[in-house]
Design a protein around this nucleic acid. Sequence first.
DNA 1: ACATTTGTTAACCAATTGGTTGAACTAATT
DNA 2: AATTAGTTCAACCAATTGGTTAACAAATGT
Lengths: 203, 203
Amino acid sequence: MKNKKNENTESLILEAAKSIFQTKGMNGARMQEIANKASINKAMLHYYYRSKQLLFEAVFKNAFSLLAPQLNTILNDDSSIEEKVRNFCSNYISFIIKHPYLPNFIIQELNRNPNFILKMKDNIGFPNTEKFKKQVVLEIEKGIIKPIKGEQLFINIMALNVFPFVAKPLIQTLIDVEDEEFEQIVEERKTEVADFIINSIKK
Amino acid sequence: MKNKKNENTESLILEAAKSIFQTKGMNGARMQEIANKASINKAMLHYYYRSKQLLFEAVFKNAFSLLAPQLNTILNDDSSIEEKVRNFCSNYISFIIKHPYLPNFIIQELNRNPNFILKMKDNIGFPNTEKFKKQVVLEIEKGIIKPIKGEQLFINIMALNVFPFVAKPLIQTLIDVEDEEFEQIVEERKTEVADFIINSIKK
DNA sequence: ACATTTGTTAACCAATTGGTTGAACTAATT
DNA sequence: AATTAGTTCAACCAATTGGTTAACAAATGT
């Protein structure tokens, strides 16, 4: 076997890189800062990941592979729209509270380099909205929910869940609350958002 | 009087800086690139704005002063909640279509430096949600709308309007549509979002 | 035991980048 | 015409930064 430090160092680097990239972005992150965080020499970053770009891509893929399964719960689950919405809002907000920088990181870096997501699309497990859209059509036909395009409903669900995390500094200042109260408001949204959506679409 | 080129160059720089900063952010922007865009020498940027930081702040304030009045329409207007929501969704989405990079720019840079917004707070015209919150309480008492916290309703309105622009690359890939169709979906949201909100809160 | 591979570091390098300088240019003012 | 004040530029500078190198240390295999 190899040096046992090997695996240790590699994941140590990834963890440090995750933390720096997710808070400062590709452009704001410094290789030296990542090395410091991992308590190793800067040359090691290149030894294990060759370049800043490749290290960044490793972090990004790692982040996206964490997010994708969350989205798939609402897209591929077999329960009713109402159940899915209630489940998703609660679980997804819990998930983001645990990974607060994640959605913003992904959104920001995809804006910086939009065709970067194409590399992800090939992976199995990449979220697909087809099943969800069909289900929306079906429940409308059955008279369970009011007419709405699947795409619009999906965007609304995402927006209501994710936006408070992405725009936290702006929103927090606009509604003039401190951290503690903001966290409480976000916590409330686990059910608040679900109710808001169901109220709107349920017949 | 001074050289008449003066004012011209200064606003030329601001326009170029706006374009570069809003697409690449503070960290991604290069002074040389801004100078190129303005077709002037790099030294001129420092002659008129002293430093990258100050040039950036000028751009940021400019952007924020464009956004603030938009928010104030829904916060300070005297019409009913329903009217305000319908008006705001239509006007705000039209506004962002004209300035597509603006919301993301503001959100991104506030995440990078959260206490930057405090400098804005002093300015008159900084959006304040007090009146809106009172109106929500009032319309609930009158039985016009269902119970909901003003803060939550405000966050929902913002989220549904802004999120598609902020997360465009992600959403567009997830729902698998090309630019043209995405623009059409966004256009639909001028009324779609308003209906969605009203449906949810109207008694 | 010894050679080879793998892991780690300090020092170094070339390119980039924000910022400065001093001279040249322009247009009012005296 | 000379002076003055503001404007513009080419060249330069120091610091930062991603990346490399060469030597050393620690495992591993034979």
